[in-house]
């Protein structure tokens, strides 16, 4: 089928990652998790993780477009 699934996956996780990380920066107080005693801005950290994952998927999709697999 003509759709490379890495495009929607990459786009969606990049978008959600940006949203989550952005929310973490702007709403620091509401983004803290105090599990285990120390405070961490989990939205910022996890948003960044999602963003990296999304970007990797997009890279894969771009690469796949440049070098289409042999039929």
């Amino acid at each position: 089928m003509g759709l490379d699934i890495r495009w929607p996956i990459g786009l969606m996780f990049s978008l959600i990652g940006l949203l989550l990380a952005g929310y973490g920066v702007l709403n620091r107080a509401a983004s803290l998790s105090t599990a285990g005693g120390s405070e961490i801005n989990i939205n910022l950290i996890w948003g960044a993780v999602l963003l990296v994952f999304g970007a990797l998927m997009l890279l894969g999709a771009i690469n796949g477009k440049k070098n289409p697999p042999a039929k």
């Binding site: 959600i16 989550l20 929310y23 709403n27 509401a30 983004s31 803290l32 998790s33 989990i42 939205n43």
Partner: peptide, 10 residues
């Protein structure tokens, strides 16, 4: 218990 707004949505 652990997820603040944002992560909760995820």
């Amino acid at each position: 218990k652990y997820c603040p707004a944002g992560l909760l949505g995820l």
